[in-house]
Design a protein around this nucleic acid. Sequence first.
RNA 1: GCGGGAGUAGCUCAGCUGGUAGAGCAUUUGCUUCCCAAGCAAAGGGUCGCGGGUUCGAGUCCCGUCUCCCGCUCCA
Length: 486
Amino acid sequence: MSEFESGAATPASLENASPDGGKKAELDGGVSFDLLISLCKRRGFVFPGSEIYGGINALYDFGPLGVRLRRNIRQSWWNRMVERRGDIEPIETAIIMNREVWVASGHVGSFSDPLVECAACHRRWREDHLEDERRARGKTGAGCPECDGTLGESRKFNLMFRTFLGPVQDDLNEVFLRPETAQGQFVNFANILNSTRHSLPFGIAQTGKSFRNEISPGNFIFRSREFEQMEMEWFCEPGSDREWFEYWCDDRFAWYVDELGVRSARLRLRPHTREELSHYSAGTSDVEYLFPFGWGELEGIADRTDFDLGAHQQHSGKDLTYFDPATNRRFLPYVIETAVGVDRTLLVTLMDAYDEEEVRGEKRVLLRFHPAIAPFQLAILPLSKKPELTGLSLSLVERLRSRWSVDFDQTQSIGRRYRRQDEIGTPLAITVDFESLQDHAVTIRNRDTMAQVRVSIDRLEVAIGEQLAEAAQRVLARARGELPVN
RNA sequence: GCGGGAGUAGCUCAGCUGGUAGAGCAUUUGCUUCCCAAGCAAAGGGUCGCGGGUUCGAGUCCCGUCUCCCGCUCCA
């Protein structure tokens, strides 16, 4: 465990956590969870799951804006990982897989830790770690490492959701909801190889839901029991894995800054220490973001060696080797994995985009989304609800919807509507007024600068394109630290 | 599971020592040729988490229960 994960986010621990103390002042603070949770519910990003029944622990529903944001995040990942390259193939595998998959992967074994609980202090221990814990505290005997209390019966604590395939609830029919999507890639490695004519190196990518019965979920949607992953498995020649590992670390880190517009000052790439490394990994680095509770992982990039393919080959008895015609050699490829959480990315884009400023003595709340991920890129706002303006406005809505995601709002005053759009991060608002009927021009108003320009309806698409590009540049400059952090 | 905090309108909260619910914001409607949470006028919305108990009477006291949030072997 790292020093950063052990403590609360006290100012002191944040100082320790900061690799370069110079950024400390900027790194402190940020939007609070309470404020964000409230905004998410009020505006329709995230709702508590099953709310009218009192909710359900650590599960959430996504509202109209949240869904749009999620889709855009997924799309951004998809574009970078699949669409703009030729060497990564997509796949979608079933959430429920043959039970043996999880035996081979090690999840049935290592995901079901035997836990014992102290009757006195109620602390829980992993049974297989008891000796280490006692030694660390200089204890002897069979009691609780902390308080010497009596330990209870050993219980299996399986992090995988269990269910039954078919109507008979029999242990023979036991199956699991996947705790990660990656095994779908490994299990289909031979299928992809045979159906796509790829030679090494190449990747297989998948987005989809995963499920884990976390012991302690929390921090809003940060750790949920149902979550969505975007995972890519990169198959390469043994010996080239270190190089590819570095490549993917750089590439994945860049995604957050260059495409999502997350401020680099709040991001870091942290290599795992030797003790942290998983049994399968020859090296792992996490992309982390500075949350109010401290640094938290968004993405893990891991050199998984040939562990997974080897395990599946052995367990299934099927040949999963790759034949290299150039060298006439047959071998198990090594794998670099990049694994991101959609929900965590959504949380980060919200937190990082959140900003407040004072305008004429009033607080203005805005989300400085990159236009590519904003739920709406445009809002059409008639200055008045008069039918003439409504008609023209709706025709613009229809026209622009073929290219952008457009919101339409004609309730209440124009000032309110600007603020409302600011709060959901719409980069541009297009205002239709009475003069528009005469001069065939409308006003484009900018979320970040509140500046307005009058443009002819004839060249509206061009003007919008330019302004969105400009807005994107502004967000990216902020992300790279070329503009003041706030 | 343990410790701490909290459950009252969509959101944020008020409601003192018990007397059958309020504010701000938000939402909706109307009027105003109306460009930065504008003005005026209205409206909708709560069995005060749930169940018991004490009491003539309970958001307010007691018991139970559920849920949420914050801390302790998580790695998306």
